[in-house]
Amino acid sequence: MGPVKKIDISKYLVVGPENTKGRPVATIIKDAVNAGFTCIQIRSKVASAKELIGLTRHAAEAIEEAGKSQEVALLVNDRLDIVLAARKQGIKVDGIHVGQTDIPVNVCREYLGEDSIVGLSARADELFEYIKTEDVSQLDYFGVGPLRETQTKPDCGLGKDGKVITRSLADIAKISEISSIPVVVGGGVKLADIPSLAQTGVDGFFVVSAVTEADNPKQEATNLVKAWNSYKSRKRQLTKQLTPPN
C-alpha cells in the first residue's frame, strides 16, 4: 500500500510516550483517528530507536484498523533513520517532520522519495524571512508556533536570545497569506482557540497535550474536530451565499 497521496493537515496530533500519562500511544492515536484527526506525528526525545520503530508500527496498525491508511498520514519527527528502518520492516510511514536544525530537507527528500511527505518547523525568529526567501519546492507544509508557551515542548519558539517567541493571530494570518504551501499551527492550542485560529486562514491546527493528556482523549479529540469542521463548514456556506451566480 503506497503513501497518502495528498496530506490533510487540518487536524494534526503529535504524540510520544512521554505525553500520554502512562497510557499506550496506540490507544491515543486510535481514539484521535476515530474522532476525525487527519495526520499523526510520532515524536519522542526519550524513546530508543527500537521503541520508536515499535511506536510507529503500532500507530500504522491503529490507522489501518480505523480503515484510514489512505487518508491519515503517519509521520515521524526528526528521525530519518526511524522512517527508513520502519519502512524496511514493512511499516507504512508516509514521511517526516523536521526542524531547521535537523537533517536537511533535501536529504530527507533524497532518501524518502518524491511520494513521501516532508514537513518543516521554521525557527520562530526567522520564520517570515524563511517563508519569503527559501525554496519550498521540497516541502509539503510548514509547522508554525507556538501560539503560547507550552510545557510539552519548552524550547518551542525559542529565539536567539533564549526567550520564547509566541505567535499572535495577526502573525499567523500573515504567515498563511505569504506561504505558498499549507500551514499548520500549534503550541499550547486548546479547544477555545480553534474558532479564532480557523479565521486566520491556516490549513490546520496541531495539538499534543490537549488530546494526549486529557482524561478522555477521544472526547477531547472529537470536540476539537467538531469545532474546526463547524467553522470551516460555516465559512463554505457563507462563501457560497456571497458568490454571484454565473
Results as ranks from 00 to 15, higher is better:
residue 135 D to P: 00
residue 42 I to G: 07
residue 129 E to F: 10
residue 3 P to Q: 10
residue 51 E to V: 04
residue 200 T to N: 00
residue 215 D to I: 09
residue 160 K to I: 13
residue 107 V to R: 04
residue 46 V to C: 09
residue 171 D to E: 09
residue 175 I to C: 09
residue 158 L to Q: 08
residue 175 I to K: 05
residue 207 V to D: 06
residue 38 T to V: 09
residue 20 T to L: 00
residue 238 L to C: 15
residue 24 P to G: 13
residue 135 D to V: 08
residue 66 A to N: 13
residue 119 G to F: 00
residue 230 S to F: 02
residue 45 K to G: 11
residue 193 D to P: 05
residue 205 F to P: 12
residue 101 T to W: 05
residue 74 L to K: 10
residue 228 W to I: 03
residue 58 H to M: 13
residue 41 Q to W: 06
residue 109 R to L: 01
residue 79 R to K: 11
residue 12 Y to H: 13
residue 147 L to N: 06
residue 50 K to T: 15
residue 214 A to F: 02
residue 153 K to I: 12
residue 108 C to V: 06
residue 50 K to N: 15
residue 16 G to R: 03
residue 135 D to F: 01
residue 86 A to G: 03
residue 36 G to E: 06
residue 5 K to V: 14
residue 234 R to A: 15
residue 157 G to K: 00
residue 119 G to V: 03
residue 104 P to R: 06
residue 157 G to N: 04
residue 237 Q to R: 14
residue 245 P to S: 11
residue 27 T to H: 07
residue 242 L to N: 15
residue 183 V to L: 04
residue 80 L to V: 14
residue 239 T to N: 14
residue 104 P to S: 10
residue 165 I to V: 08
residue 176 S to E: 07
residue 174 K to L: 12
residue 100 Q to W: 08
residue 121 S to V: 02
residue 164 V to R: 02
residue 183 V to M: 06
residue 198 A to M: 07
residue 225 V to F: 01
residue 175 I to D: 04
residue 16 G to I: 05
residue 234 R to C: 14
residue 83 V to Y: 00
residue 78 D to W: 02
residue 32 A to S: 11
residue 3 P to R: 14
residue 153 K to H: 15
residue 103 I to V: 14
residue 85 A to R: 01
residue 3 P to C: 15
residue 190 K to P: 12
residue 206 F to L: 09
residue 176 S to V: 02
residue 32 A to F: 02
residue 75 L to V: 12
residue 48 S to F: 05
residue 133 T to S: 12
residue 45 K to F: 11
residue 45 K to C: 10
residue 93 V to F: 01
residue 182 P to S: 12
residue 196 S to M: 04
residue 200 T to V: 04
residue 190 K to D: 12
residue 83 V to H: 04
residue 184 V to H: 07
residue 201 G to C: 11
residue 219 Q to D: 13
residue 37 F to K: 11
residue 109 R to D: 11
residue 71 E to A: 12
residue 151 Q to G: 14
residue 173 A to S: 13
residue 169 L to W: 02
residue 142 F to N: 15
residue 197 L to K: 07
residue 134 E to M: 12
residue 29 I to W: 00
residue 152 T to G: 12
residue 96 I to C: 01
residue 43 R to N: 14
residue 215 D to W: 02
residue 70 Q to F: 04
